[in-house]
Design a binder for these strands. Sequence first.
DNA 1: CTGAAAGCGCTTACAG
DNA 2: CTGAAAGCGCTTACAG
Lengths: 339, 339
Amino acid sequence: MAQKIKLSTIADALGVSTATVSLALRDSPLVADSTRDRIKDHARAIGYIYNRRAASLRTSRSGIVGVVVHDIMNPFFAEILRSIESELDRSRQTFILSNHYDQLEKQRTFIDTLLQLGADGVIMSPAIGTPPEDILMAEENGLPAVLIARTVEGAAVPVFRGDDAYGTALATNHLISLGHTRISMIGGTDQTSTGRDRYQGYLNAMEAAGLEVRPGWRIPGPRTKQAGFEAAGQFLALKDHPTAACCWNDLVAIGLMNGIARAGLTPGVDISVTGYDDLEEAAIATPALTTVWNGQREVGRRAARALLDKLSGTQVRPSQELIKPELHVRQSTGRPRER
Amino acid sequence: MAQKIKLSTIADALGVSTATVSLALRDSPLVADSTRDRIKDHARAIGYIYNRRAASLRTSRSGIVGVVVHDIMNPFFAEILRSIESELDRSRQTFILSNHYDQLEKQRTFIDTLLQLGADGVIMSPAIGTPPEDILMAEENGLPAVLIARTVEGAAVPVFRGDDAYGTALATNHLISLGHTRISMIGGTDQTSTGRDRYQGYLNAMEAAGLEVRPGWRIPGPRTKQAGFEAAGQFLALKDHPTAACCWNDLVAIGLMNGIARAGLTPGVDISVTGYDDLEEAAIATPALTTVWNGQREVGRRAARALLDKLSGTQVRPSQELIKPELHVRQSTGRPRER
DNA sequence: CTGAAAGCGCTTACAG
DNA sequence: CTGAAAGCGCTTACAG
């Protein structure tokens, strides 16, 4: 590889100063049009590559934004990421992605990396057990944070997520209105705000309808298709098993439906199933899944914008933004089967 | 936020030079044990954050590796990424991820960003139409590249991918051995090496068995669940429609099965379907999908290692590494139905 | 409109 | 084993 080309290479070749080259390349109005064009043409011709590390060291802005979620392989996060991506692209920010798999240590390592790289900000779905101090520490070191999907009590930052209690209440009420009285809640965990809220919404709806809730009807844990598939056995083995299942998310619901089908029953006919998120594949599942649209696009878009606002110095209040979910009724729910 | 803490802050406080601090923090044997401990303890105590931009500007190593694929939302790539991640984690490299969605411009922008950040290397599944010059340019500017999944003719870099022609031949031969004679190939495109190879493998198997291949039996294009779902209509509308479909990947196969089920037919009984990749969800699909294991883990692991080898100066030959696929037979394939 | 000079926070020869 | 000094490649006041 040839001699490294830098600003001064261009400056020397054209008989101007590096200051002029620097300004010209960034389209500063301080530089005469003709000078600017001459410089830009030459830079392109010799294949100049802008050194962002050097610039960033000087300006202490890196153009890097970090995004950390539980698992990008989860389509729920993937859909959020997609909209974050398109929002950040527009303002020419590079983003660095990481999974924390709900391990606090991995999350801390990543935040540390961002600090070392001088990242401009971070969008995070906090790992289970994230203490508010972790977020405070980042902010104090110049790394503003915005939260998605989950909240952290005591962290004074903006949070964007769906109204989870309202959402599961929608699903549960839909099942109740079809005539179901024994309804199970499958998946999720009390260790996250989302988990607590979704369970609460289900409880609220059941109680408001005067329906009994048996402890065994809750099968906590599953969050993946695989786990939903495996939960089918446990669900069907419940004494007087429920006629409907309100699932933690679409993945669990689709897995459960597969497990139910594998056991020789027909989901949507023998057992009604609701999902949560309305992933792209909910509509093409067999049967098509009744689910709660969770506003992934909206969450990603608003979170990215809030962060960009913070970066540009706009005051952003540390508020909870709850996106209103919507029920999308499809074929996986119906009247309870006569027995 | 308090006064910025840097090496010299520590040096001043402890009455040593910045050189000593720098060496101590990196565990250099040149520094006395007691001095090192004193320095490290103090650094931790006052919350020192290492500035990687400054270090990288000096050393011209950034500890950043870029990864660019068509779409990280695609579980096929997600599984590859997972193994790349665990391999890179181990050697403490940060990785930056990007989708190119098969747009050459997006891919170029990303490579440019990597060059500007002084990334140490890039692992890429090249976008359709990537000219070898793009890869050559990156390498000449100090960004070594390793290819996954697809190859680029004329690019002298290591490539890790499955033996695609062999893989679809496995699937096709399996269908033939069950007694199918009218077999369709659904999905993929001739614009990628993978697309050409997979179609060729299907053709080879059909011809070797002396079976006719009608042009209409190939439905090119679909690569997603949604597209596979939509292709079901076209497939079922074929005159004397085939009794089996060899699909581009698991997503198309699962989508197609859903579409077939929606049309009132039973996949695995009325129509046999094979996938490709053996994603985690292939095993829990309904019916469980017969598919070709494509070695995602292996591809990711080997590609990451090859890049790390390149970075450490080991000579890596620009060879094609073909991972041997394996057929996993499940319930989505069976004997053709009598008509 | 353009140039000379300082400085961002590290690491690396070079001395001692 | 430790320190003084130069330099990585930019940008930013400050002069003119």
